[in-house]
Simulated scan of single mutants.
Amino acid sequence: MTDNDKISGACKKAESSFYSLLSINIGTFHINPLTSASLVSKICIPKLLFGAELWNNLTKSNCMQLERFIRMAAKTIQRFPIRTRTDICLAMLGWKRIESEINLKKLMFLERLCNMPTTVLTKQIFNKRLALFSCRTDKCIQKGFVPDIIRILSKYKLSDFIINIPHYHKNNVRLWKT
Results as ranks from 00 to 15, higher is better:
residue 73 A to W: 12
residue 150 I to R: 15
residue 92 M to T: 14
residue 59 T to S: 14
residue 114 C to S: 10
residue 117 P to T: 15
residue 99 E to G: 12
residue 124 Q to K: 15
residue 151 R to S: 06
residue 125 I to F: 06
residue 84 T to F: 08
residue 87 D to I: 03
residue 152 I to R: 10
residue 117 P to Q: 15
residue 134 S to I: 06
residue 82 I to P: 11
residue 89 C to K: 01
residue 100 S to C: 11
residue 111 E to G: 06
residue 114 C to D: 03
residue 102 I to Y: 14
residue 118 T to W: 09
residue 60 K to P: 08
residue 78 Q to R: 09
residue 101 E to Q: 10
residue 110 L to S: 00
residue 123 K to E: 05
residue 82 I to W: 14
residue 104 L to S: 12
residue 57 N to K: 09
residue 123 K to Y: 07
residue 144 G to F: 00
residue 113 L to W: 02
residue 91 A to C: 00
residue 130 L to E: 01
residue 58 L to R: 04
residue 127 N to Y: 02
residue 134 S to T: 13
residue 125 I to E: 14
residue 154 S to Y: 12
residue 152 I to F: 03
residue 70 I to S: 09
residue 103 N to E: 13
residue 69 F to N: 14
residue 117 P to N: 15
residue 149 I to V: 13
residue 98 I to G: 06
residue 73 A to D: 13
residue 60 K to M: 09
residue 127 N to E: 11
residue 116 M to A: 09
residue 153 L to R: 09
residue 98 I to T: 13
residue 100 S to W: 10
residue 128 K to L: 04
residue 75 K to G: 00
residue 95 W to K: 05
residue 95 W to A: 01
residue 87 D to Y: 04
residue 107 L to Q: 01
residue 100 S to D: 12
residue 153 L to C: 15
residue 103 N to K: 14
residue 135 C to N: 15
residue 58 L to P: 03
residue 80 F to N: 15
residue 128 K to E: 11
residue 62 N to Y: 01
residue 60 K to S: 12
residue 114 C to V: 06
residue 126 F to M: 00
residue 100 S to F: 10
residue 85 R to Y: 12
residue 98 I to D: 08
residue 143 K to V: 05
residue 109 F to I: 00
residue 57 N to I: 01
residue 70 I to M: 12
residue 100 S to V: 11
residue 102 I to V: 11
residue 125 I to P: 10
residue 76 T to N: 13
residue 81 P to G: 04
residue 139 K to G: 09
residue 154 S to V: 05
residue 131 A to S: 07
residue 106 K to V: 01
residue 144 G to W: 01
residue 128 K to T: 12
residue 80 F to V: 04
residue 145 F to K: 03
residue 108 M to W: 01
residue 74 A to D: 08
residue 144 G to Y: 00
residue 56 N to R: 08
residue 86 T to A: 01
residue 120 V to C: 13
residue 67 E to W: 02
residue 148 D to L: 12
residue 77 I to R: 01
residue 124 Q to S: 10
residue 100 S to Q: 14
residue 60 K to C: 06
residue 125 I to S: 08
residue 126 F to G: 01
residue 148 D to N: 15
residue 127 N to L: 02
residue 105 K to N: 03
residue 57 N to D: 06
residue 139 K to F: 10
residue 113 L to R: 02
residue 77 I to H: 01
residue 59 T to G: 11
residue 106 K to Q: 13
residue 143 K to F: 02
residue 147 P to T: 12
residue 100 S to G: 10
residue 153 L to I: 09
residue 137 T to H: 09
residue 73 A to S: 11
residue 153 L to W: 07
residue 124 Q to G: 06
residue 88 I to E: 10
residue 84 T to V: 07
residue 155 K to Y: 13
residue 114 C to T: 06
residue 93 L to M: 07
residue 75 K to N: 00
residue 113 L to H: 02
residue 131 A to I: 08
residue 56 N to S: 12
residue 81 P to N: 08
residue 68 R to K: 07
residue 98 I to N: 08
residue 82 I to C: 09
residue 129 R to W: 02
residue 58 L to G: 03
residue 153 L to A: 14
residue 76 T to S: 13
residue 147 P to D: 08
residue 150 I to N: 14
residue 95 W to T: 03
residue 106 K to G: 01
residue 134 S to Y: 14
residue 98 I to W: 07
residue 129 R to Y: 02
residue 118 T to S: 08
